[in-house]
Amino acid sequence: MAKVKARVKSPKSVKKGEVFQVKTLISHKMESGRRKNKKTGENIPRMIINSFACNYNGKEVFASDWHPAVSANPYMAFHVRAVDSGTLDFMWKDDSGKEYKKSAKIAVT
């Protein structure tokens, strides 16, 4: 699909000190660069999301580098320890330098 869409699942509210799970999914073909156009025989150039990061109130808490072996529509699940109420910012970056962003609020009680 042409439009890249991201989905994020994180709890709305957590107790301070608790470790919670975050799940993310983003629509992307993750073109590996190793496929050929069946008709022309030409290589289809690589175009993948190569990095992902999650910032919690501005501080990076988890990040990941992705290679062409990451499946299409990449799924990423990880954990974060609840410290303060605020925002989780998610960033994906593809080979062309394009960035996709999404954020979620979190209340820490």
Partner: peptide, 22 residues
């Protein structure tokens, strides 16, 4: 190489999951 997961003490757990091509 498939993926690199980068943690910090703020991650709380060194646990992650994704999907890959084999």
């Amino acid at each position: 190489e498939v993926a690199v997961f980068k943690f910090s003490p703020a991650s709380g757990k060194a646990k992650a999951a994704t999907r890959m091509r084999l």
